[in-house]
Amino acid sequence: MSEASVEGIGEQLRAAREHHHITLRGASRRLKIREAYLKALEDEDFAVLPQGAYVLGFLRNYALLLHLNYRELRDQYRKQFGGKIAEETEIAPEASTRKRIGFILTPARVIAFTIIVGSALFLWYLFSQYQSLTRPPILELSSPLEGEVFNARSIRITGRTDHNATLRINGEEVHLSTEGIFEREFVALKNGPESLEIVSENRISGKQTIIHRNFNVALPSSDAILPNGGNTTGTTAPVDTGITISIRTLDSVWFRVSVDDGANEDFLMEDGQTRTFHAKSKIYVRSGKAYAAYVSVNSKPEELMGTTSVVERTWTLSDL
């Protein structure tokens, strides 16, 4: 490129820069163009500038910064040198005067962000529901307390678990309320230590929560239950004339009794009551709370009606 100067270009650039109170160093930082190149433009020393379109690129960016008419400066430069000048191209990043723009919140970005957040929340909800459905149930036992001593035969078992769990106390399933609250009566059959195993099982995953509870029973001597029924006896009948069954209860117990295949008799016996039935050949007994009832057949020692809530038993003369 010729070293001849373009009259007036450098003076216009310098005058505009000084008018705006901008130093060469300040302009260099803002334009990201070397200070030496800007000084060469003002001195019209084009020989030190890169060849070709870079000159026009530097000139355009400098003119825009100083609010000068770039087209006039470009035309003036072309008239001075003549010939075809390469059209300006994008200058390297160091020469860019575009102001960097930060993050812009657009409708598309808002929608994308909403979808991402919504999906994350939905996945978290599914995960929490899965955890809730498959985890071991919560199980709390309010009574009896560990090591508690009872002076009565009837002991109330109370607590709470998940309402959709299966609850068993000593192997027997117990009904739950809609809130998961359970209540069950335990009848002590003897003095001394007793134990409970309460198992709450998740119906879906089968995972269990188990509580073992130990307590003690200290019944007054008048209430103690002896193997043969103690101080409570039923009416007996001669054993050689058929079957005689005496029933004694430790709590309110419902019964259904049929003698010699006759009509069923349904009745409720309260704590401490005794009833006796006599048949020629057969007696059928169905009992709720069988664990709270004792039976004696033909004056033999008493035995529990059963160990679960509902029990059916039949005695025939041929079996005795």
Score class of each variant (00 low, 15 high):
residue 8 G to P: 06
residue 104 I to R: 04
residue 292 A to L: 11
residue 48 V to K: 13
residue 8 G to L: 10
residue 283 I to T: 08
residue 151 N to G: 06
residue 132 S to N: 07
residue 318 S to I: 13
residue 46 F to V: 07
residue 270 E to C: 10
residue 302 E to N: 03
residue 272 G to M: 10
residue 45 D to A: 15
residue 13 L to P: 03
residue 189 L to F: 12
residue 10 G to V: 07
residue 318 S to D: 15
residue 301 P to M: 05
residue 271 D to C: 03
residue 92 A to P: 01
residue 275 R to M: 04
residue 295 V to C: 02
residue 35 E to I: 07
residue 289 K to H: 15
residue 215 F to R: 05
residue 153 R to A: 01
residue 27 A to P: 05
residue 228 N to Y: 05
residue 123 L to K: 05
residue 203 R to C: 09
residue 310 V to A: 10
residue 285 V to I: 15
residue 185 E to A: 15
residue 257 V to E: 04
residue 259 V to N: 00
residue 175 H to C: 05
residue 99 K to E: 01
residue 226 L to P: 06
residue 202 N to H: 11
residue 249 T to R: 14
residue 299 S to N: 14
residue 38 L to H: 09
residue 163 H to M: 12
residue 293 A to V: 06
residue 129 Q to C: 05
residue 209 T to A: 13
residue 123 L to P: 07
residue 316 T to S: 15
residue 28 S to K: 02
residue 270 E to N: 14
residue 140 E to S: 14
residue 64 L to Y: 05
residue 186 F to D: 03
residue 143 S to K: 02
residue 60 R to T: 03
residue 25 R to A: 14
residue 306 G to T: 06
residue 191 N to P: 04
residue 226 L to H: 06
residue 309 S to C: 03
residue 239 V to E: 00
residue 112 A to L: 11
residue 153 R to S: 04
residue 171 G to C: 15
residue 272 G to N: 13
residue 311 V to M: 01
residue 296 S to Q: 14
residue 185 E to G: 09
residue 100 R to Y: 00
residue 267 F to V: 12
residue 2 S to G: 02
residue 183 E to W: 07
residue 61 N to M: 00
residue 215 F to P: 10
residue 312 E to I: 10
residue 213 R to S: 09
residue 82 G to A: 12
residue 8 G to F: 11
residue 19 H to T: 11
residue 14 R to D: 04
residue 49 L to D: 00
residue 246 S to G: 13
residue 26 G to I: 01
residue 152 A to R: 01
residue 224 A to Y: 09
residue 263 A to H: 06
residue 156 R to G: 02
residue 236 T to A: 10
residue 205 S to G: 08
residue 247 I to K: 00
residue 75 D to A: 08
residue 279 A to E: 07
residue 197 E to Y: 02
residue 138 I to M: 02
residue 173 E to H: 08
residue 227 P to S: 11
residue 98 R to V: 08
residue 317 L to C: 03
residue 289 K to C: 06
residue 274 T to Q: 12
residue 62 Y to N: 02
residue 54 Y to W: 06
residue 109 R to C: 01
residue 271 D to R: 15
residue 224 A to T: 11
residue 164 N to L: 12
residue 264 N to S: 15
residue 189 L to N: 11
residue 58 F to A: 06
residue 118 G to L: 03
residue 235 T to K: 11
residue 305 M to F: 08
residue 297 V to Y: 11
residue 189 L to G: 14
residue 172 E to G: 06
residue 217 V to C: 02
residue 200 S to K: 15
residue 131 Q to D: 11
residue 181 I to G: 03
residue 249 T to E: 04
residue 144 P to N: 13
residue 255 F to S: 05
residue 246 S to F: 00
residue 71 R to T: 12
residue 123 L to A: 14
residue 14 R to L: 10
residue 215 F to E: 09
residue 263 A to R: 14
residue 163 H to F: 13
residue 202 N to G: 14
residue 52 G to M: 15
residue 164 N to I: 07
residue 230 G to H: 04
residue 228 N to E: 08
residue 114 T to P: 04
residue 168 R to F: 07
residue 187 V to C: 11
residue 241 T to S: 09
residue 129 Q to T: 06
residue 229 G to Q: 10
residue 52 G to L: 07
residue 171 G to P: 14
residue 116 I to G: 12
residue 239 V to L: 01
residue 80 Q to P: 01
residue 2 S to M: 05
residue 292 A to N: 13
residue 255 F to M: 09
residue 112 A to H: 07
residue 34 R to Y: 04
residue 237 A to G: 08
residue 124 W to F: 09
residue 187 V to A: 04
residue 45 D to Y: 11
